[in-house]
Amino acid sequence: MSNVAGKAYGMNVLTPLRWWTALWQKLIFWVVVKTFPYFLKGLLTLSLIHYARWTIINRWSFPRLDKTQPKETLTYSYMLFESNFNGSWDQYIDSFSFAIPGGLDMFWRWNIKYPKSIPLHDFYHYIRFNQIECDHYYNAYPLASANDVKSAKRLTGNLRSFADSLTDNMTDEAFMDAYRQFLADNQHALGSMGDSPLMSTSHQLVQHHKQVNTAHEKQPEEEA
């Protein structure tokens, strides 16, 4: 079990809402989508999230695939929030909560017992209490943050155009000038790549245990 894959933290939060307020919440999301990016400007500027989603599960819409599967009889509908962001919840809760308290409150506003994003301790514990840990979490680029992916895209696109714009008959000096200009235009995309900072000493311990398990090839046989 780990919510950490390289530079990304995988968060799952499941919270109840009354079934009719779930419909209100859906309407809010609809407005957010229609007016994009108006309500998400803070989140975009914060630039910590690769991908995130909010999914309303109506109390009647838990998948039932077979008659043998008991039918769910729930009082509440539920909201499943899933996020892939850089840094851990403990490290970045203050950044989320301070940058976009209004946005967070809007997205969880109808959830039962949601405490609002400020004061922080209650919000922190609300999310933690309703968080479900990942059993398996996969990240295609453990060495890259969302910022790295986006700046890599810009840099590569620009580098392709730059390479294509060069001609054999330009002078070395003209090349040099163009190269300097290229570096200046892309100076914000040239951060070094590397490992994620350690998200916590607990995670470090888990990584260590996994290494030991692998080294000793003593992963317990599974039961089935």
């Binding site: 400007k41 803070g42 975009l44 500027t45 914060l46 203050d94 950044s95 301070f98 940058a99 308290p101």
Partner: peptide
């Protein structure tokens, strides 16, 4: 860190706790 003006609750929202 507020690279887009008005994006955050206050301009120094990401600094005040650090």
């Amino acid at each position: 860190l507020e690279t887009q003006k008005g994006a955050f609750n206050t301009p120094s929202a990401l600094d005040d706790r650090r």
